[in-house]
Design a protein around this nucleic acid. Structure first.
Lengths: 234, 234
DNA sequence: GACTAACTCGAACGGCGTGCGAGTCCTTTG
DNA sequence: CAAAGGACTCGCACGCCGTTCGAGTTAGTC
């Protein structure tokens, strides 16, 4: 059945619905969280929004810029306690855990985070609140910056490695236990010459994947905070 | 001038020259170091080797596998002192600096490092030597793993952020001083609402880019090692 | 009813990783 | 010496990508 121009009905709805940057960012976030950076393409994103691929370019200059927006979105999810509530040390601990869980929620972050500087509004706000928190510890002005960026770098470094491990498990499609036993086997094959490594892998996987990774994270964070605290007391 | 088949001279050289995996890896390394991940394509790599693009696939299964080889190549550049030479703490410090400078030499590493696990031969050897070093500190078996991976994560996290900063300067095409003053300005524009951040940026850039980044790195590493040392003495 | 600004989108460009199959060379075997 | 076969190269083509361009549609204003 052909539809002529004159039989075609008029658009009933008067108000035109329009794409918005927020909408695009939200849709991109769900794709990214589900499929990673490799799974995000402008065409796919547009399809999810029932739009033409090139329509996106009216709202966002470039894919890279879109990713910048998404990164800053993540920074907005992190909370930094005010030092009055529980003191500096407890606050820093909470901050670290909040940062970690945000990255675990958005495992694509490490892949893109290090290729560009973070100067979005949420990043700025995060930094400012961090300075307040670490300022309450009693560091000199100069040390405030150093201490805060040490903690951030430790957390991001650790959790980036953690994400790599978790993604490897996820992509293998196996259960955790299954994967663990397999990776032990594989590591032993590759590292047959390094018995220390074999033992290390086995030790690491003994407590279970999740617990092991958490323990790993906490251990180093505690040590770092100990070291920082010692500096402030001096 | 046409060249007939019968006037064409025979190949003088008897032994055929052939691509090799080592050759490919080496060429890819120079491209990567110079132009980053975005600058490496199979066609460009092949051109550099005067070969057809698809010839590479006889020697290397996939571009991702090639990158894996390159990552492991970097792990091979890092040295881990034996603890007998200077003790644990000094060894860990040297290890950290060696790791840092390797990443600075290959600034593309953070972009790809976190997307895959490192189980190549050099990674294994690095891990094994690390375990020896940290084993000499007096940790329990379990703590050896935790301590070593804390240090690695801290170093990689810090230097990844450092690389992002340095690349930003490099790509801006400006001199360091020029860039610094510009970024201060820009940060103040973006973060006008956050006077603490303005002050922080100015403080960080006061000592010069290179010195500031090094100081940042050393400060956190020292603190972390302090914290670890305290654990071992307990 | 004409004009304009806001917004959409199909076609096309150049580049990408890679599978395929034909082609070339060198060595081995008879 | 010829034939066979493995080692290696590579042009073509496919389907995907980010992005540009210019033409199109719509909603609101005079």
């Amino acid at each position: 059945m052909k539809d002529w121009i004159w039989t075609r009905e008029r658009k009933a709805s008067p108000a035109r619905e329009t794409l918005s940057r927020e909408q695009i960012v939200a849709a991109a976030m769900t794709i990214l969280d589900a499929d990673g950076v490799a799974g995000l393409s402008m065409r796919k994103l547009a399809a999810k929004l029932d739009a033409g691929a090139t329509s996106l370019y009216w709202h966002v200059p470039t894919k890279d810029d879109l990713v910048d927006l998404l990164i800053d979105e993540v920074w907005g999810e992190i909370d930094v306690p005010e030092p009055e509530l529980a003191g500096w040390r407890a606050g820093a601990l909470l901050f670290g855990h909040s940062l970690r869980s945000a990255v675990l929620r958005h495992p694509w972050l490490p892949e893109v985070m290090y290729t560009r500087p973070s100067i979005g509004p949420n990043a700025m706000s995060l930094g400012a609140r961090g300075l307040v928190l670490f300022g309450a510890a009693g560091f000199t002005e100069h040390e405030i910056d150093l201490a805060m960026s040490s903690v951030m770098s430790y957390v991001l470094g650790t959790v980036s490695a953690e994400v790599a491990t978790r993604e490897m498990v996820r992509k293998s499609g196996r259960s955790e236990d299954n994967w663990v036993s397999q990776i032990v086997e594989q590591a032993e094959a590759v590292a047959g010459d390094y018995p220390e490594m074999q033992a290390s892998v086995r030790r690491r996987t003994a407590v279970g994947l999740d617990a092991g990774l958490t323990q790993n994270f906490v251990f180093g964070l505690d040590a770092l905070l100990d070291g920082l605290e010692a500096r402030v007391k001096r």
